[in-house]
Amino acid sequence: MTRTQWAAITAVVLALVFAGTATVASAARDDGSAAGTRTPSSASADAGFARDMAVHHQQAVEMSFIVRDSTDDEDVRRLAYDIANTQANQRGMLMGWLDLWGLPKVEAGTDPMAWMADGDGTGDMEGMEGMDHGDAGHEAHDGSLMPGMATKSELDRLREARGKAAEILYLQLMTDHHKGGVSMAQGCVRLCANGTEKSLAEGMVAAQESELALMADLLAERGAKART
């Protein structure tokens, strides 16, 4: 088995392990106090993260299905399958929690990432400063609603690309996407109150950082590198 295969397997196993344990993590993390057991409010970091990461994940799933049909390369197709499968499952958990909490899946009048703003309004954007799509001044444009998200124009380019060109563009877009996702998940680890959700966010960080290393290797094999 190649290093690429091992890396891909490691990433998806990490994600599935953390996602699975997240369903029972509250028993270990929550101590029965009001802070541990109360239902999050609609304006909480818990609800904001669930809403925003569900949208963020949906685009990763979409990009992965696009590249799956644009290349015959087994390494990239395997990575795309792992990302699509893991993030679709995690998205289902996030949306399920919103249902369980009796909260809307879309909060009208609330900007994406508003839950990451701290008390003085400056925001909790640690780790996002150097990203083209993910700095603290990110503004929604052309379908890029949050840090790391591809624009509609970039998605159109991905749909049109084939073979090696599609592989490189996908890996570059997904690298940006994961960097934004990791920063969002780290924000939940710092700000979310629900122990179950914090466990899932920790799993996202571990899995996506592993996949970032794998994607850097796959880009290098193709004579390319990340855009940021």
Rank of each mutant, 00 (worst) to 15 (best):
M1G: 13
T2H: 14
T4A: 15
W6H: 12
A7N: 09
A11G: 13
V12P: 04
V13D: 10
L16M: 14
A19D: 07
A19F: 11
G20T: 04
T21H: 12
A22F: 02
A22V: 00
T23S: 05
T23V: 13
T23E: 06
A27S: 09
A28W: 13
R29T: 09
R29Q: 14
G32I: 08
S33W: 10
A34K: 10
P40E: 09
P40N: 14
A43L: 09
A43F: 12
A50R: 00
H56S: 06
Q59R: 07
Q59P: 02
V61G: 00
E62I: 14
M63F: 13
M63Q: 09
F65A: 08
I66F: 12
V67M: 05
V67R: 00
R68F: 15
S70H: 12
T71A: 04
D73T: 03
D73N: 15
D75S: 14
V76F: 02
R77P: 06
R77Q: 02
Y81F: 15
D82G: 11
D82V: 14
D82I: 02
I83P: 02
I83W: 00
A84P: 08
N85Y: 15
T86W: 13
T86N: 13
Q87G: 00
Q90P: 06
M95F: 12
G96N: 01
W97P: 00
L100V: 09
K105W: 13
V106E: 10
V106S: 06
G109I: 07
G109H: 04
T110N: 07
T110L: 04
T110D: 05
D111N: 09
D111H: 15
P112Q: 04
A114D: 06
W115F: 04
W115D: 09
W115P: 01
M116V: 08
D120L: 13
D120H: 11
D120M: 06
G121R: 03
G121Y: 01
T122V: 12
D124N: 10
M128E: 11
E129L: 03
E129C: 06
G130P: 08
M131C: 08
M131R: 13
M131S: 11
D135S: 11
A136H: 15
G137K: 13
E139Q: 15
H141L: 14
D142S: 05
L145A: 08
M146A: 01
G148D: 09
G148Q: 01
G148M: 08
E154S: 11
E160L: 03
A161L: 01
G163R: 03
A166R: 03
E167H: 06
Q172K: 10
M174I: 01
T175D: 14
H178C: 05
H178P: 04
G180K: 09
V182Y: 05
A185F: 02
A185I: 10
Q186R: 12
R190Y: 01
L191Y: 00
A193F: 11
A193S: 14
T196D: 15
E197M: 14
S199N: 12
S199I: 06
L200Y: 02
A201D: 00
V205L: 12
A206K: 08
A207P: 00
Q208A: 12
S210W: 02
E211T: 10
E211P: 15
M215W: 06
M215F: 02
M215T: 07
A216W: 00
D217R: 14
L218T: 01
L218K: 04
L218D: 01
L219G: 05
R222S: 12
A224R: 14
R227W: 14
T228L: 14
